[in-house]
Amino acid sequence: MSKTILTVDDSRAMRDMLKMALSDAGYDVVQAEDGVHGLEVLEGEAPDVIITDINMPRMDGFGFMEAVREDQRLRSVPILVLTTEFSPEKKQRARDAGATGWIVKPFDSEKLITAIRRVAA
């Protein structure tokens, strides 16, 4: 059974790029447009990995991750954050919010898949 990845990003171009790279690598992809939408999707099913952007309207990545971690059901789901730069404070902030790891943009497929395989089967 193939693994499912939830991607949360308000940019359609970014969602498309992620979907392309992840599908090629054999993952099933579920998408959401921002944190609020992401939580709605998560009510339906728990993915194997979550990839989320940080800067989104309605609910940003930090808020989203915090909400995810509050859900007992989802406490062990690895979450990767997408970001354009990652200073130590940003890393810590993401960490505090519940992130497992990060992917720096611009990413290539290889980096993306390596990051996923570092946190999930």
């Binding site: 609020v36 939580l39 940003d60």
Partner: peptide, 13 residues
């Protein structure tokens, strides 16, 4: 920092 922009409640919408 940007605050959480929505309350996640029973009605996430």
């Amino acid at each position: 920092e940007p605050k959480v922009q929505a309350q996640v409640s029973d009605a996430p919408a």
